Deep mutational scan, measured.
Amino acid sequence: MSGNGNAAATAEENSPKMRVIRVGTRKSQLARIQTDSVVATLKASYPGLQFEIIAMSTTGDKILDTALSKIGEKSLFTKELEHALEKNEVDLVVHSLKDLPTVLPPGFTIGAICKRENPHDAVVFHPKFVGKTLETLPEKSVVGTSSLRRAAQLQRKFPHLEFRSIRGNLNTRLRKLDEQQEFSAIILATAGLQRMGWHNRVGQILHPEECMYAVGQGALGVEVRAKDQDILDLVGVLHDPETLLRCIAERAFLRHLEGGCSVPVAVHTAMKDGQLYLTGGVWSLDGSDSIQETMQATIHVPAQHEDGPEDDPQLVGITARNIPRGPQLAAQNLGISLANLLLSKGAKNILDVARQLNDAH
């Protein structure tokens, strides 16, 4: 009898209710805020589980004197976190989706994509230029951005401005803007500013005609071990179906173009009346040469937790077992079709030249 009692006690200790789920994140304040929001949602869904947040620095956090596009290494903000995932030191990792490459290392998958916040870019102005827009900034004003995508589009749109690289986390960039006289304004992701509670610093939100956004911008991705079915089931509740389908289309477009950090590629997606609209573009580094096109596809946005595919093969690095396969494939095909259209119009040449120029500098 006593033996059975011990077995029952052991089973209770090993039951999922007692389990601590370890969540990996970057150390920056924004990353911690984003991770806290994901953990809060998981806690609400699984009140019996405990969650421990483990923060670590990544290569991208450490190399702050070089433009991201020049470092010449993929997975700048993800490699150390993936290493911890691989060694079973954490069970899942919360990322900004735009930091996750469209091809993940073997053994990993994006197990959830959370509801997207505003994906557009924002302009934050130096205190002396508050009330201005990019259009009304004085001639030769210097605007800071760490992104080739932003610089290429904005140089084309605002030729009277000069664009220079600015690195560091959000706090560091804002301090550089406010305390030094080098920059009249800087460009940042609206979602990051909003998550930090800095709505009052948003001086201008850039519309798609001015600057399309990065693939996955404004959404959070939760990376897990691809074979860890328990954790895949656990994080599945975080999937937002519309965000998922938009981001599958965007990531398929980028992957098929073979774009990345070192080339200016941008997108804009919208879901309306059962249609998914995808606009994508590529630019030369100075913005003088560009190709942009829009395509659409009829896609039914499923309700969360309709029964999805059981075999769960990944699409552009994403596993969404609780979302039907048909809409996911339709979104992926839309991204591939748009990429093929741009490639047929000469996108590869623009991107190759951009890559060579970026590598040469």
Rank of each mutant, 00 (worst) to 15 (best):
L134I: 08
I110S: 02
Q34L: 05
L315G: 06
T269I: 00
A31F: 00
E89V: 11
A270V: 13
D240N: 15
T41K: 09
L285G: 15
I291R: 15
K70V: 13
S96N: 00
M56R: 08
A303H: 04
E179I: 15
L134R: 03
F253C: 04
P105C: 05
L134K: 02
A67H: 04
T279Q: 08
H199N: 14
G168S: 02
Q181K: 12
A297I: 00
S45V: 09
T172Q: 02
N200G: 09
G281N: 00
V130H: 13
R150C: 06
V38P: 00
A249P: 04
E52R: 13
G216L: 02
P264E: 05
G131D: 09
L42S: 02
S69M: 14
R173F: 01
Q296G: 12
L30Y: 04
A331N: 01
V222C: 10
S69A: 09
A40V: 12
G107K: 07
D273R: 14
L104D: 05
S344Y: 07
V235G: 04
Y277A: 13
I113C: 12
G335K: 03
L97E: 04
K62S: 13
S284P: 00
R195N: 02
R26E: 00
P313T: 07
H120E: 14
L76A: 06
V38S: 05
L49M: 12
T35P: 00
K345V: 05
L148C: 09
S75F: 00
S184C: 15
V20Q: 12
H305F: 01
H199Y: 13
L232W: 08
T319I: 09
V235M: 11
Q328R: 01
G221A: 07
K272G: 01
A249V: 07
D312Y: 12
K227C: 01
Q181M: 10
G107Y: 02
D307G: 15
I248F: 11
E89H: 08
N200L: 05
Q304K: 14
G346E: 15
L285H: 08
L206E: 01
P47V: 11
R175D: 07
A347D: 01
D307Y: 11
L285C: 06
I113Y: 03
Y213L: 03
N340Y: 11
A112C: 14
T102N: 11
E73L: 07
S165A: 07
Q50R: 11
V263R: 05
T66M: 10
L351C: 15
G72R: 08
E117R: 07
L161D: 00
L76D: 12
F77Q: 03
V123L: 11
L68I: 14
G259K: 14
G107E: 10
T136H: 12
K74N: 13
T269V: 00
L188Y: 01
A84Q: 06
L244G: 02
A112W: 03
A339I: 02
I336L: 05
L338F: 02
G308V: 13
V301R: 09
K227T: 07
S165H: 11
P241D: 07
C114K: 07
T41G: 08
G218P: 00
M271S: 12
Q275M: 15
W198Y: 11
A67W: 01
E82W: 06
D121V: 02
V90F: 05
L174N: 04
L104Q: 08
F51Y: 09
L92P: 02
D359S: 03
K27W: 12
L257R: 15
Q275N: 03
V130P: 12
T25A: 11
R26G: 00
E89Y: 13
E242S: 04
G24P: 00
T78I: 14
I323R: 07
Q180T: 10
R195I: 15
P127Y: 01
P208V: 06
I186Y: 03
A31N: 00
L170K: 04
L30G: 00
D312H: 12
L220Y: 09
R175E: 06
A331P: 02
F163R: 09
L76I: 06
T136R: 11
D99G: 03
L238W: 04
L206P: 05
H83S: 12
T279L: 06
H300F: 14
A214P: 08
I291P: 09
I231Q: 00
K87W: 12
C261Y: 08
C261H: 00
D99E: 06
L49Q: 12
G335R: 03
E135C: 09
V103W: 14
I336K: 02
D311C: 01
A84E: 07
P106M: 05
K272C: 06
K98S: 03
R225N: 03
L234E: 02
G218V: 05
P127K: 10
S69R: 11
L257M: 12
L245Q: 09
K27V: 14
V316A: 11
T190A: 13
L68Y: 10
L148I: 13
L351I: 08
L276F: 04
T66L: 09
H305Q: 13
M295S: 04
E293N: 08
I350M: 09
L351E: 14
K128G: 12
T109G: 00
Q304A: 15
L276C: 10
P264C: 01
A330V: 14
S45D: 11
N340A: 04
D65C: 05
I53S: 08
Q180D: 07
L338A: 15
Q296M: 02
V124C: 09
L85P: 02
P313R: 14
P208F: 14
V143G: 04
S45P: 09
V20W: 08
A270G: 06
D228G: 12
G308A: 12
V282N: 03
R175K: 12
E223M: 00
T133A: 07
R355P: 15
Q292G: 08
A226V: 12
D233K: 10
V235W: 02
G317C: 14
L100Y: 12
R255N: 04
V142Q: 06
N349P: 10
L278Q: 15
S141N: 14
A112I: 01
K140H: 08
P302S: 06
R22A: 10
L81Y: 04
R116K: 03
D65M: 03
D233R: 08
L343H: 13
I166L: 11
T59V: 07
V39W: 06
H83A: 12
R22P: 05
F253W: 04
E117M: 06
L97D: 01
I350V: 13
M196G: 09
A266R: 03
V202S: 06
Q29K: 12
L342C: 05
G280A: 14
Q194G: 05
E86F: 08
T190Y: 07
L81W: 09
V215L: 08
A252R: 02
I187W: 03
R246K: 06
E82S: 10
R156P: 12
R116I: 02
R355Y: 08
G221C: 09
H300T: 14
N358K: 15
I113H: 00
I53T: 07
H199T: 06
I63P: 12
I166W: 12
G197R: 09
G346L: 09
E306H: 12
H305R: 06
Q155P: 10
D312P: 04
E293L: 06
F108R: 14
T145E: 01
R116A: 08
T243N: 10
L351G: 01
H207L: 11
G24D: 00
R195C: 04
E162F: 14
V316T: 03
L357H: 15
D36V: 12
N200V: 06
L81K: 03
V224P: 05
P105Y: 03
Q314N: 14
L338D: 00
E223H: 06
L148N: 00
G280E: 01
Q328M: 15
T172C: 08
L234M: 06
G260A: 04
E223I: 04
I205V: 12
E139Y: 12
V90W: 04
L188G: 09
L30V: 08
S37P: 06
Q155F: 11
H268M: 15
S141I: 06
L276P: 02
L68C: 09
V90K: 01
H305A: 02
